[in-house]
């Protein structure tokens, strides 16, 4: 694995390996000294062309916990706002000697271009591109689901009993809300499928993308029926991405109140979930729109834990992409 661009590229073995590595990373994060010397002297550039709080901070924390140097680069206040192209930005980063580039971009496919155009020889990690993919978010979701729901792992003796070595076979995950604009949904459908889980997308018809029938999942327009008849083990609420809805396409639903009546997770729907079921949200939440405060703050919600798991998953991704690079200059012993 040289880059982490899309969850569709991951084999089941790679995905389980990534989650297992994340479990070991998480174990180090409960220590008094959380920092590991693993990536000392290596440089990670956070290249963010789009606003982000938790993903950027999470990647920055992960890189620092592994002793890498972190350079934050956001489009606002950089030469990008003067019209510099992605290529010239990449060449600049190359000249500065970046070992890994974490990129978030509003254009789908920008990380792929960065990885394959030959501008850079660094590892590229996709931190969200347009409405395409957000692989580390999907991995941390899968990690969270596995910790709570997977059969206790038999892979390793003792130590991390968080389902290490297990996949997600047989689990049912409902992904509810703005699927059309959601890279989180796309990344999750591919990864959860690879790991053996079943996925149902629940969304109003206007927020279901064209071509969804080719995705390896079911779709439904009825949240109540899905919760009652299909009995999901995990419910993942997606944020209604109003910033992407203001374009020429106009409104996607008549009113926020109607959306929240039909597709919001409120106390009534929360009570109908199975006892073991968990409620997830990639954040940031629109409380009162797709998720009510009762649901967000309930015992079933693992939303804050998702953020903590994000650090471990990103440490694992950085470790697996950067640590074993034998093509690097080498003789530092």
């Amino acid at each position: 694995m040289k880059h982490l661009l899309s969850t569709a590229d991951l084999s089941k073995q790679e995905a389980v390996g990534l989650l297992d590595t994340a479990a070991q990373m998480a174990a180090t994060q409960s220590r008094e000294i959380k920092k590991l010397p693993t990536l000392r002297g290596r440089t990670v550039v956070n290249l963010f062309f789009e606003d982000s709080t938790r993903t950027r901070i999470s990647f920055e924390t992960a890189a620092k916990r592994l002793s890498a140097d972190v350079i934050n680069f956001s489009a606002k206040g950089s030469s990008v706002s003067k019209g510099e192209s992605l290529k010239d930005t990449a060449l600049t980063l190359h000249a500065m000697g970046a070992d890994a580039v974490v990129v978030r971009h509003w254009a789908s496919g920008a990380p792929y271009q960065l990885a394959h155009a030959g501008w850079l020889d660094a590892a590229v990690l996709n931190a969200g591109d347009g409405t395409h993919m957000h692989p580390t978010q999907a991995l941390l979701d899968a990690y969270t689901i596995r910790r709570h729901l997977a059969v206790r792992g038999s892979g390793l003796p003792g130590g991390a009993a968080d389902g290490v070595g297990a996949d997600l076979a047989g689990l049912r995950v409902a992904i509810v809300g703005d699927v059309l604009h959601s890279r989180v949904a796309r990344a999750n459908v591919a990864l959860l499928r690879t790991l053996g889980a079943e996925v149902t997308l629940v969304a109003p018809p206007t927020l279901v993308p064209v071509g969804v029938e080719t995705w390896p999942c079911r779709t439904s327009y009825d949240l109540d029926a899905t919760l009652d008849d299909w009995r999901p083990d995990a419910v993942m609420m997606l944020r209604v991405q109003r910033e992407r809805m203001s374009g020429g396409a106009g409104a996607f639903f008549p009113s926020p109140l109607e959306y929240s009546r039909y597709y919001g997770l409120d106390a009534r729907r929360l009570a109908r979930l199975a006892d073991h079921a968990i409620v997830m949200h990639p954040g940031p939440m629109n409380r009162g729109l797709e998720i009510s405060a009762e649901a967000a703050d309930s015992d079933k919600a693992v939303i804050v834990e998702q953020v903590a798991n994000g650090i471990a998953v990103r440490m694992a991704a950085l470790y697996l992409l950067m640590a074993g690079d034998s093509s690097a200059e080498g003789n530092d012993l």
């Binding site: 034998s326 690097a328 080498g330």
Partner: peptide
């Protein structure tokens, strides 16, 4: 950095 990536143990 001289070897393929090693799996992290417990």
């Amino acid at each position: 950095r001289r070897q393929p990536t090693r799996a992290v143990g417990v």
